[in-house]
């Protein structure tokens, strides 16, 4: 038998398993190599504009996708058990810098603005920075009602500036395709200060316009929490009307039959009545599970 004919085949059969084993070992070893932070410095936009040559739009897409992939990688576990680790301040800063760079390269690109608004406000408390980004988007995308709508919400809910919030909502209501509700909401903001109730109307609208599953889940949880707060606030108001003072605890509301049941905070915290009679929660409307799992796995 001619061995020479079969030799290359035998060699291949031996080399292929060897290839896969070296690949898996090397990728493990590579992960253990001392490296810098995954999130790093973002080049200033004028430099990025030069280095992206003829491909500003494409570079903008790549920066945005890179941010999206990084944010996705902070979720650990599988499907239903998926939990997000708490992001560090430096990581939030990096996300902001990346989204800023992406929108500098293509200021008309809507997705980075929406992503910034979804992540950097509620989670990172970077309201002013997010508003700056949204204002840039609003300047360029002058046909879009989303950006002034979000700006309105941020001013009203986070910054407590109802006047400015109403102004942006009015602006949003005049854009093509805007919900007729915006004008109504603007008027409400201008004259009343029903913060939670208005926030629920805002969030229901945001939910209606969002397709992204993660964002939808986020909005749904927040909406559930705010509805629970509104429910309890109404109970407190009824208590005050009946007794002339604020209740000392939520249990009192139930004792007097003002609320049938005490809602649970979907963020894992507990609702309580603050000194001024407002409803607060120990979770501060941030996921408690996230904080705990982060403490377990620093």
């Amino acid at each position: 038998m001619n061995m020479g004919r079969f030799f290359p085949v035998i060699l291949l059969l031996a080399l292929i398993p060897l290839y896969f084993s070296t690949l898996s070992t090397l990728s493990l070893m590579n992960k253990r190599l001392p490296k810098g932070d995954e999130v790093n410095v973002v080049l200033p936009s004028p430099i990025l504009k030069i280095t992206s040559l003829d491909f500003d739009g494409l570079s903008s897409d790549i920066l945005y996708l890179k941010t999206l992939v990084f944010y996705g990688s902070t979720f650990v576990g599988k499907d239903a058990n998926k939990q997000q680790r708490k992001l560090k301040e430096s990581e939030f800063n990096w996300i902001y810098d990346m989204l800023k760079a992406s929108t500098d390269l293509d200021p008309y690109f809507l997705d980075p603005y929406l992503f910034a608004n979804g992540i950097l406000t509620w989670e990172a408390n970077k309201i002013r920075e997010t508003n700056k980004l949204l204002e840039k988007g609003n300047h360029y995308r002058d046909w879009d009602y989303w950006l002034p709508f979000f700006l309105g919400f941020n001013h009203f809910y986070f910054l407590g500036d109802n006047e400015k919030g109403a102004e942006y909502l009015m602006e949003a209501s005049k854009k093509p395709g805007a919900s007729p509700l915006y004008g109504h909401l603007a008027a409400r903001l201008a004259y009343k200060s029903n913060k939670v109730e208005n926030a629920i109307i805002f969030l229901e609208n945001m939910l209606e316009k969002t397709d992204d599953k993660t964002m939808r889940k986020d909005y749904e949880t927040r909406l559930k929490a705010l509805k629970a707060i509104l429910f309890l606030e109404k109970g407190v108001a009824a208590y005050k009307e009946k007794t002339g003072r604020n209740p000392s605890s939520l249990a009192k509301l139930q004792e007097l039959g003002l609320v049938e049941w005490l809602p649970v905070d979907p963020y894992g915290g507990e609702f309580y009545i603050d000194k001024d009679g407002s409803i607060k929660t120990t979770s501060d409307l941030r996921d408690m599970k996230k904080t705990q799992s982060n403490q377990e796995n620093p």
Partner: peptide
């Protein structure tokens, strides 16, 4: 891409 699929598709095609 969540929203501006058209923009990204055009970017990539032209590039």
């Amino acid at each position: 891409i969540g929203h501006e699929v058209g923009k990204v598709a055009v970017d990539i095609a032209l590039s």
